[in-house]
């Protein structure tokens, strides 16, 4: 088990419970989908897991070590392994920086990382960035452009390149395809799937789109009002023991 979450709870105020005793675990190289409607706490869960927000009760352990967002030295070790991709491709890149500078930010902070995909020695910073862009299927000419000159899909690819640059073993994706066109969505999902296989990465895929989740994930967790309603493997999707809420979600997404 690489990521183990036990009894995780968080509330914003006394009456507003964001997460309520969440427990689950992920094996290395596994892809877990977290499905829920807006307000279900799924984005909060992502932020807590990546250490952007504090939590009140429960434990998170990664590879046996507890994750405490307040201790900076521990956090560094964790961040080296865990990266996140956000929903809004337009605001996940600084509009005032050229793409290549944005891409390099994690790698600049973890200089000891020498990712396997970098070919050649003594690359300049810009060359490194160009290689990262090529890795996610972008033209290296884009390195010098600004985010406003890129399409939504291209920006999301840049975000992926940035997140993968330090070769994390756990990637948390918060609705990475929600703001994209259908054809681009499929490209991005395929890209993630390829990297997951290649790097043997664990992915937590947060989405309200059950189709995208079933495309990528083997395990699905259904979240509602901060509580886990249902947790099952992909081949039990239509099993009659599914929670009514899960059934409603599938019903809403299906064509018939």
């Amino acid at each position: 088990m690489s990521l183990v979450v036990e009894g995780l709870s968080k509330n914003y105020s006394k009456n507003l419970v964001a997460l309520n005793t969440i427990s689950f675990s992920a094996k290395k190289g596994e892809c877990i989908g977290i499905v829920g409607e807006s307000g279900s706490g799924k984005s909060t869960l992502g932020k807590v897991l990546v250490g952007l927000e504090n939590y009140k009760e429960g434990t998170i352990t990664y590879n046996g070590a507890p994750v405490v967002p307040t201790k900076r030295s521990r956090l560094r070790e964790y961040r080296k392994n865990v990266q996140m991709i956000f929903q809004d491709s337009s605001s996940s890149l600084n509009p005032k920086l050229p793409v290549w500078e944005s891409v390099l930010e994690p790698l600049d902070n973890f200089k000891e990382c020498s990712p396997a995909f970098l070919e050649g020695q003594n690359l300049s910073r810009k060359e490194t960035a160009e290689q990262l862009l090529i890795m996610v299927g972008l033209d290296k000419e884009l390195a010098g452009r600004y985010p406003e000159e890129l399409s939504g899909g291209q920006k999301q690819r840049v975000s992926i390149a940035r997140a993968l640059s330090i070769e994390p073993s756990l990637l948390i994706c918060d609705e990475p395809t929600a703001s994209l066109d259908v054809t681009v969505q499929v490209q991005i999902l395929n890209l993630l799937k390829d990297f997951q296989k290649k790097m043997d990465m664990t992915i937590l895929f947060i989405s309200h789109d059950i189709r995208a989740v079933t495309f990528l994930c083997e395990q699905i967790i259904v979240l509602k009002n901060g509580t886990i309603q249902d947790q099952f493997g992909i081949n039990e999707l239509y099993h009659k023991s599914r929670h009514p809420y899960t059934k409603a979600l599938i019903e809403a997404a299906s064509i018939q």
Partner: peptide
């Protein structure tokens, strides 16, 4: 055709 191919199927569809 391209658009339709992009609709991800649920298992069993």
């Amino acid at each position: 055709k391209k658009l339709c191919a992009c609709l991800l199927s649920l298992p069993g569809e």
